[in-house]
Design a protein around this nucleic acid. Structure first.
Lengths: 216, 216
DNA sequence: TAGATTGTTAATCGATTAACAATC
DNA sequence: TAGATTGTTAATCGATTAACAATC
């Protein structure tokens, strides 16, 4: 257990660093300084150094951090040692976006089963993923050793789906439904609430516009 | 200026409270206590009270908070006094999900123009929204008084789109692209990074599974 | 060596939590 | 009044920022 209590935000930033580093490596950049990396994600150099220290990665004052090494270290930290299976529930627009994105990028993290209520979709293959009927969630999740669930159903069904996921042994949930889920403490939930984000952006956009007016 | 520096998170929670309160009102609930509301969003009673105090809403020790009043007060705080126009750039799966959701829910916040590079989509009406070619972003944004932009394009194009939005006077951006945007300080950016969320959930799901094993 | 950066410690800041008097 | 809840202040906690010696 090298990393007992790593903050949520650090994990998120590590994921970002890796993506940027992969681009840099592709462009031939071998070394990078903390302030350069910070500039690319809109953070501070100290923050970058702290994050990398957290995962035990060290740089040198003259060369900064080795890009290829760092990518490998972040991978060793973030990625599952073996495959982690994911179930997607609800194949609407969001579900399809995820199905389209994942196969190519993260080989260790793959959506191995999708579920929907719509009989039109059941037992068809959508974006390369088999779609099952909602009722079979528990059965399939158990059989396929599903560890992560994505909830992309209407708010009214989200809690029922979450309960079924928890019962079948899922440990993490990404929730796109516009409702907070009630789950046991040992289940990690990541909420993605687009409506809330839109309202927040609208609010702060307006507030800043007002501030600007007052300054003038 | 009654609310000089309201925290980002408070605004987000207020948006959540309102949604829950609307459901409660529909079910006939007239009053609610802070701990009840807290239970529904997975927060604490003190947090709820602080949030409501921030917007100047007070309750009574015997009845708690008046649901209908509170909805109105949150609305007065969060919502724009007049219509705020939104532009969506990139009509993929995510874009379509947003187009499908918004018209019905938030009358003051409407997507009045969509943009895409695909000639198949240009000058067609998709989900009730006219789609323009990418080149016309600046022109249309100016003409329609766009205040908020949604970026739902591939990472490689996101910065270019953001720059164009900023030039045309947008004050807030909701960014679905998997890349951090560089924008002036007075522009509010809300990042929604699904890949990062998936990686975070996968990481913590695994970590908690490990903890559980160790306890046993 | 000089200079820039790293790793580490101390200080600051903000938000959350706890405590408690005021209220209905 | 008694009891539960509210509004408000003080204490705690964590994360960020600043400062600085160590390093190449």
């Amino acid at each position: 257990m090298p990393h007992p209590n790593i903050p949520d935000k650090t994990v998120g930033r590590l994921s970002l660093y890796r993506r940027i580093l992969n681009d840099l490596l592709a462009m031939g950049t071998e070394n990078i300084f903390s302030h350069q990396l910070a500039g690319m994600i809109g953070g501070t150099a100290a923050q970058v150094r702290r994050d990398l220290m957290t995962i035990g990665f060290t740089g040198s004052p003259t060369k900064g951090y080795d890009v290829a090494d760092l990518i490998k270290t972040i991978g060793g930290f973030l990625d599952a040692p073996e495959k982690q299976n994911v179930a997607l529930v609800g194949i609407g627009n969001i579900g399809r976006a995820l199905l389209a994105y994942f196969p190519s990028r993260r080989p260790n993290l793959s959506i191995v089963a999708a579920f929907d209520r719509d009989p039109e979709k059941v037992d068809r293959v959508i974006q390369g993923c088999h779609c099952y009927s909602m009722e079979r969630l528990g059965e399939i999740a158990g059989a396929k050793d599903i560890q992560l669930g994505i909830i992309a159903v209407p708010a009214s069904e989200a809690q029922i789906v979450a309960d079924a996921m928890v019962r079948s042994g899922v440990r993490g949930i990404v929730n796109f439904a516009r409702v907070p889920l009630r789950v046991p403490a040992h289940i990690y939930v990541e909420n993605i609430d687009m409506t809330m984000s839109m309202e927040k952006a609208a609010f702060f956009a307006r507030q800043r516009a007002k501030e600007k007016e007052e300054v003038q």
